[in-house]
Structures are given as structure tokens and as C-alpha cells.
Design a protein around this nucleic acid. Structure first.
Length: 445
RNA sequence: GGCCCUAUCGUCUAACGGUUAGGACGAGAGCUUUUCAAGCUCUAAACCCGGGUUCGACUCCCGGUAGGGUCACCA
């Protein structure tokens, strides 16, 4: 009957990376799998470092990933409550005001410390099993800098309880914080939630993903044209799997399949190459229209009728929308710009023993191409041209390439491009004839 | 360094005492009747080490080793 409540509690002190959002993904999936509640709590107790723009970025990212909060809080909103409980702890003799000698600039002369009862504390981690911490090592730790400035551990213990959080799902770097927070809960008479410490996401140097190691903000991936479905899919599979052979799960399938008991204990390395591969999978599932809209291809000031025809090529080549955009002005720009031809390249595949075959082939292809209907498919173009090149091949080895290469180069002007059949079907017969004629002129000149 | 956690191909992982240790990404090769891309097929690639327990250990226990995390008036 106890319904599940999880929370994602980021601090708005910087741009968050994939490792941060991976915990959000797991907390969300776990909550939704059991039809529970997902809370987002912005931990802005550090007024000096918290910035509104970082908070906005976090919300943007969660919206993009479609991890909507059922309830959203800002920790600073709970100041009065924190103050009240801080006073209670002091009154009850569980905490005390301590005079200090400031060690660092900004340090206070009076802080509030928690009276450490000593001993050991054990909790059962949902993922790792029993974890025991010797509390004595902690000393009388600080829980607030003043009555209005609670420190992380205190604010977390209070808020988790007040918000009815049943499962604290967070990174393994918080394991050693758990005992402190449990101590505070007990002193306050609050129940202890269940803890699930997720394995950390590492960078390629096997260090915790972080700013210093150059971890990208997740919104950077969004801006590069990674699909939210792909990011979600990839992140969910970092430290978890559904237990069957499926590799690509939609959001709904993830919610349905998520099982926290299958979460890995060991840390995992963030692999951008794999992410891109997952992204390509999801990009290919998009309709051509959605592909154009979502990739902003329409804003490129290119002929839209041709863009639409090129989308299938982009789907098989690009791994991100950014790459797709770059291809239209780069390796696939021949669909939009007339090629500048190099006579030597036109003749690059001409067998020495068959001089003049390039020009005769191009001339011989002119009429058949002219006769092609409007809107002809690449497959049909192929059925017209292949017999022609096969005939040349029959006359001598290398004949096929001797026909196809100059044709493709005449049409594209680049050494690497899609095949000539595809180019003709996209360019149309008029433009194709024009380009081939130009190539013939160069060969004759 | 103290404390805590972890350990299967390069990477993400399957296996929950008995398998030729499987899949995916990546890599290599070949085939796809020109190049590139895609696709298809194939190949290489892993149980950290040492002790136990057991008829039998990747699987359980212990010890090493290695890696990671954490030791703030940050969260």
C-alpha cells in the first residue's frame, strides 16, 4: 500500500552531466514502474554557489528527457522548517552551538554541531546489501552554519522526510553520507527511507564523471542533435539491463521493464561512441518530415524539395542531427551545388588499354537518361544504366568502373558520394544531363 | 593514509553451481555487380590472483591484488 516516492536532488551550481541525469533516470523509472511519485528538489542551500541559470538548465534538461516531476521544490523554500527543527535539536540536547576558530575565509565563529552518539550504524542498501559505518570517525559534524543556513546533510534529512520520500536513489559517492543523514533522522524521530546507491559513471580515465575531466553538459548533447529517446535509452542501460536481448527500449518500455534488483554494482564508463550508435537507431525511426523538423534542416536555406529527397541518405549516414546538417553543406553538398570538375579525376578509372571510354560512355548515357520519367527512382535508373556498363564490361575488364566512375564524378564532382543512380533520381534528369554535358565539354576541351 | 564500495571481451553487459562463457557497440576480413555510406556474413576479443566449500565453481566463503568513492562551515 505504501506507494513509492523517489526524488532527484541536484544542486544548481553548474551544468549537470550524463552521470547526474543517469540517477534521475533511474529514480524516475523506479518510481513510474511502481506507479509512484517522482520529486525534483533543487538543492540550493549554498546560496553563494547556486545560480538561477543552472536551475533553469536542469529543468530544461529534465523536460527534454521527458522526466517530468510530479512535485518540484526548491530547498531554500524550507528555511523556516529547517530553522524550527534545528532549534528543536538544540533544545533536545541533540545538537549544540559551537564556538570555532575559522579556518577558511567565510567560516563562521559559531556553527551548529550534531552531538555524535558514537557506535556503528548499518543500513541495507537496495543494491549493495548491508553497509556499516563507524560513526565515531565522524565526530560532532556540522549541520548548520547558522539557524538559517542548514548544511546539506540536515536539509536532506528533513526534506526527504517531509516530502515522504520512500526511496533515496543516488550516486554511490553518497554512501558515506548516509550514516550522518540517518543520525539526523533518528534524532528528529523521522523514519529512515530505503537507500539505493547507484554505481558511478566514469570517464575514459576511469574517474568519476565530472567537470574537471571534461564531462559535457547533457544539454550539449541535446544541442548536437542527440534525441532524448536515445539519451534516455543509453543512460538507462548504463548499469542496468532488462535481462533479455533487447538493446533499444522506448521510454514506455523502460518504465515497464525497469527492475532495480538488476542494477549493476560496479561502475560503468560513459562511451560516446555507443551513445551515437544508439542515437542513430532512434534517428532512423523518425519519419522524414520529423527528421527535417527536429534536425532544423529547414533552416539551412537549401532547396526544400531536394532536402526531403536527401533525408533517407542522411538517415543511413548521420549519427546526430548536427552531423546531418554538416553533411548537407559538406559531403552531400553536391545535391545543392554544381560540381567543379577536374579532368584528371574524370579519367581516373579509365583503363589504359581503352582510351576514350569515359567520354563515349557519358555521351552514350545522355539519351537514355533524357528518356527517364520525372520522379524516377534510383532503382529504375539503375536498371537503365547497369546494362550499359555491363556491356562495356563485356568488352573488357574494368569496363563497368570505366562507365560508372566518370558518371558518378560528373554528377557529384567529389571522389566520395552516393551512387550515380541515387544522384540522378534526386537531381532529376534536366540537372543530370546538364552536369554530364559539362563533363563531356571538359573532356573534349 | 583511514573508512567504504567494486571486479566477465577495448566498452556496456548475459550467466543467478553443471553453457563450446551469450549479446550489443567498437575493431578486422569478406560479400554486396564503381567510390563513400548503409546492409549482410565471418573473425579476433573476457571470467583479476590465490586459497577454500562442493561430485562440480564466473557464480558461494576467506585472503590478496587492482580500481573507484569518501574523508568541508559543497552538494
Amino acid at each position: 500500500m505504501n506507494s513509492v516516492v523517489t526524488r532527484f536532488a541536484p544542486s544548481p551550481t553548474g551544468l549537470l552531466h550524463a552521470g547526474n541525469y543517469r540517477t534521475a533516470v533511474f529514480a524516475y523509472l523506479f518510481a513510474k514502474h511502481s506507479e509512484g511519485k517522482f520529486i525534483v528538489r533543487i538543492e540550493d542551500t549554498d546560496a553563494a554557489r547556486s545560480k538561477p541559470e543552472y536551475e533553469a538548465n536542469i529543468i530544461d534538461a529534465l523536460t527534454w528527457l521527458r522526466l517530468p516531476a510530479d512535485e518540484q521544490y526548491r530547498q531554500s523554500e524550507h528555511r523556516p522548517r529547517h530553522r524550527e527543527l534545528l532549534e528543536k535539536l538544540i533544545t533536545d540536547g541533540m545538537a549544540y552551538i559551537s564556538k570555532e576558530i575559522p579556518k577558511n575565509p567565510g567560516d563562521r565563529e559559531k556553527v551548529i554541531r550534531f552531538k555524535n552518539p558514537g557506535g556503528a550504524i548499518t543500513f541495507t542498501d537496495v543494491i549493495r546489501g548491508d553497509i556499516t559505518t563507524d560513526i565515531g570517525d565522524l565526530g560532532d559534524f556540522i549541520i548548520a552554519r547558522s539557524l538559517d543556513e542548514p548544511v546539506f546533510h540536515f536539509a536532506v534529512a528533513v526534506d526527504d522526510s517531509d516530502e515522504g520520500v520512500t526511496h533515496v536513489i543516488r550516486g554511490a559517492d553518497h554512501i558515506s553520507n548516509t550514516a550522518r543523514q540517518m543520525l539526523i533522522q533518528r534524532a528528529l524521530g523521522f523514519p529512515t527511507p530505503l537507500y539505493a546507491h547507484l554505481p558511478l559513471i566514469m570517464d575514459s580515465n576511469h574517474k568519476k564523471l565530472g567537470k574537471r575531466s571534461g564531462a559535457k553538459a547533457i544539454t550539449e548533447y541535446r544541442d548536437e542533435g542527440i534525441l532524448p529517446e536515445a539519451m534516455l535509452n543509453y543512460l538507462a542501460f548504463l548499469g542496468w539491463n532488462p535481462g533479455d536481448v533487447r538493446e533499444y527500449l522506448s521510454r514506455e518500455e523502460l518504465v515497464q521493464a525497469f527492475d532495480i534488483s538488476r542494477v549493476q554494482k560496479g561502475s560503468a564508463i560513459f562511451d560516446e561512441v555507443k551513445l551515437f550508435s544508439v542515437n542513430q537507431h532512434w534517428m532512423r525511426k523518425l519519419s522524414d518530415d520529423d527528421f527535417i523538423t527536429m534536425s532544423d534542416l529547414g533552416k539551412l536555406a537549401l532547396r526544400s524539395d531536394i532536402v526531403l529527397k536527401v533525408v533517407p541518405l542522411l538517415k543511413e549516414r548521420a549519427k546526430t542531427f548536427k552531423e546531418a546538417r554538416e553533411m548537407l553543406t559538406g559531403e552531400l553538398s553536391c545535391f545543392f551545388n554544381k560540381p567543379e570538375l577536374d579532368k584528371n579525376l574524370l579519367l581516373a578509372k579509365e583503363p589504359p588499354e581503352r582510351p576514350g571510354i569515359a567520354i563515349s560512355a557519358l555521351k552514350g548515357l545522355l539519351e537514355p537518361i533524357k528518356a527517364l520519367p520525372k520522379g524516377v527512382s534510383a532503382e529504375v535508373v539503375k536498371t537503365i544504366i547497369m546494362p550499359f556498363s555491363d556491356a562495356e564490361e563485356a568488352k573488357g575488364k574494368g569496363g563497368r568502373g570505366a562507365v560508372l566512375w566518370p558518371l558518378r564524378y560528373a554528377l557529384s564532382g567529389v571522389e566520395r558520394s552516393p551512387d550515380p543512380f541515387t544522384i540522378i533520381s534526386i537531381l532529376g534528369t534536366d540537372e543530370s544531363i546538364s552536369r554530364i554535358s559539362k563533363a563531356i565539354a571538359i573532356l573534349e576541351g
